Amino acid sequence: MNEVLEFLLNNPTFYIATMDGDQPRVRPFGAVMKYNDKLYFATNNTKSVFEQLVANPKVEISTTSPECEWIRLTGKAVFDSSTEVKSAMLESVPSLKKMYSF
């Protein structure tokens, strides 16, 4: 997991693919952290990506490096809206403080 996190942090724009009914949707993300030995990604629960993940939590994440190395992760989203996780994400990715608060 540390190698995956390092790759995502070194290539800070990564793409998350979800399903919107029968239509795939891909969008850029940049917020990732390790917390309690798990990878965490952040989004707002008012966004369509959140609704899509609630409806179908299967997700793929992909990015590439300037050296053309790439990664593709497949998994299932598990939601954690605890205050501790939110605080950790805001500290881990300070740029989120401009967009989010709790």
Rank of each mutant, 00 (worst) to 15 (best):
M33L: 01
N11R: 06
A31D: 00
S101D: 09
F50R: 06
F14Y: 08
D80W: 04
E69F: 15
Q52A: 11
N2M: 11
V4N: 02
V49Y: 04
K58D: 09
N56E: 02
N45W: 11
S48F: 14
V26F: 03
D37Y: 05
I71Y: 01
I16E: 08
L90C: 02
E3L: 14
F7K: 00
A17M: 08
T18V: 07
E6L: 12
K97D: 04
V32L: 02
K34I: 15
V32F: 02
S82D: 05
P66C: 10
K86L: 13
P94N: 01
Y15N: 06
F79K: 04
F7T: 00
G75V: 02
D37S: 07
T74E: 13
Q23C: 14
C68G: 13
S87P: 11
F29W: 08
S87W: 11
I71G: 03
L53S: 06
A88H: 04
R25T: 15
T13P: 10
P94C: 01
R25C: 13
D80N: 07
K98R: 10
V59E: 00
L9C: 09
M19H: 12
V4Q: 04
M19D: 09
S87C: 12
Q52Y: 10
E51P: 10
V49T: 15
A88C: 02
M33P: 03
T83A: 12
P57H: 05
K86Y: 12
L53T: 08
E67D: 14
S48P: 13
K86D: 12
A88N: 03
S48H: 12
G75A: 03
Y35P: 00
I71Q: 00
V59M: 05
E67L: 13
L8P: 04
V26I: 08
N45G: 13
A88V: 00
V59L: 02
V93F: 09
E3N: 05
E69Y: 13
K98T: 10
